[in-house]
Write a protein that binds this DNA or RNA. Structure first.
Ligand SMILES: [Mn+2]
Ligand SMILES: [Mn+2]
Ligand SMILES: [Mn+2]
Ligand SMILES: [Mn+2]
Lengths: 225, 225
DNA sequence: CTAATAAGTTAGATTGATCTAACAATGTTT
DNA sequence: AAACATTGTTAGATCAATCTAACTTATTAG
């Protein structure tokens, strides 16, 4: 078998830690139900796995209370994320995949145990700091280089912005952006915002377009004027 | 978890099928004990897995009789081997790994489910037919392009040969060859053979060297004169 | 041809990851 | 505050992959 040594998380544990990390990005109050939905397993399954993760020191948890990663758990999660994001970047940069096809592959590759393999990817790409969706790649110690990114729909009218990353990216979002010709690095100007549906009117490469709040709240930008 | 669909082999089953394939290359009579040693699991474990593989139609087996892959089992094994060998070649050709470091990584990568991933490797390398150790890469249908390779110690005195592949390659063998400056493509002349210890005296790049039978029976060659 | 050795099998247990059914606690509405 | 809905827990089962101990069959050596 895969014989990961006993100090180390199983693939399942790794996937739980990553899910907890992602959920605590949006809500900060991670529940059993959240995990159950996000991992598509029953609540009793999550309940017992959560006990297991607590016993291994990866999370803090008390009956009926929210779940949070410990320092150790956060580091383990960050190191898997590092492998995931390096992989995604490598698949796009070096193997010619589209940014919407790489997540599923990275979901599997992230569990490979071989520091040399990921170090080599990193080196061949010149030590990238973000993945193809603009998410930061943690360093080898599991530290995130902090970034202060702003959501597009939080920017003022008239401001010009460059898209630097995506929040909660999904295949659907990526395909939507592809269809509009929007990508990381695209420069947009905010023309107006509707208070009725929170949609944002932008101009971009001459074109004038409306983006729903569902899209604009997922676009992280840097203001350039 | 990794949710391979129900028609498909688990990672454990894949590793068993590959082990059966490799064992039947050298001995043709694959036993429970052989598998137990090669996979480092107990004989009862092998016994029950063998029943399982039979139930899934991958092998033929009757109590106390030898184990053999069915047509289906052979194909499954060949397709994993294809992924393993494409990976090894990719790691050497495109990522700069040494031929002795790639096996362990490929042992994990071979279980990734993503035809696109392996097709892309294949394409980027220009459809190689052998891996870095000279073993043939089965095609997408799981067919082996037949090769007629001869062991070095079966060649006559005076003949000149080029090393095209290795048999039962191991990290130890690869490191030994590295230390002597011998690689795939090396051209050797057979000077003499000892009937006492079956060692072979060769000349190679001006140097005169003796190779034990342990080495020479693992070198597969093409005679060039 | 027996007796010793090796190989294979059965039985029963364990562990990790999952499930369903039933119940308990918490939170939200009227 | 009581009722209802949501969320979480417990108990008990299953399945894959593994183990050890005990037993049986096959092979090999004397
Ligand atoms: Mn991803
Ligand atoms: Mn994963
Ligand atoms: Mn190999
Ligand atoms: Mn493997």
């Amino acid at each position: 078998m895969l014989s990961r040594d006993l100090l180390m998380a199983t693939i399942t544990e790794e996937n739980y830690l990553k899910a907890i990390f992602h959920l605590s990005q949006k809500t900060d109050q991670v529940s059993i139900s959240d995990l159950s939905k996000s991992l598509e397993v029953s609540k009793p399954t999550v309940n017992s796995m959560v006990k297991n993760l607590k016993a291994h020191g990866y999370i803090s948890y008390e009956k009926y209370k929210p779940i949070a990663l410990t320092k150790v758990g956060l580091k383990v999660a960050a190191l898997i994320l590092r492998k995931h994001r390096l992989t995604e970047m490598y698949l796009v940069e070096k193997m010619g995949f589209g940014w919407e096809e790489v997540h599923e592959i990275a979901e599997q590759v992230e569990h490979i145990e071989s520091p040399a393999f990921f170090d080599r990817m990193d080196e061949l790409m010149g030590y990238p700091t973000v993945d193809p969706h603009g998410s930061p790649i943690p360093d080898k110690k599991g530290e995130f280089l902090s970034q202060n990114k702003k959501k597009l729909n939080d920017c003022g009218i008239g401001s010009e912005v460059i898209i630097t990353a995506l929040r909660m990216s999904s295949k659907g979002l990526l395909e939507f952006l592809d269809s509009r010709g929007i990508a990381l690095g695209s420069r947009l100007k905010i023309l107006s915002k509707s208070t009725f549906d929170n949609s944002v009117m932008i101009s971009y490469e001459g074109k004038k377009e409306s983006l729903s709040d569902k899209v604009s709240e997922r676009l992280l930008v840097e203001e350039v004027s």
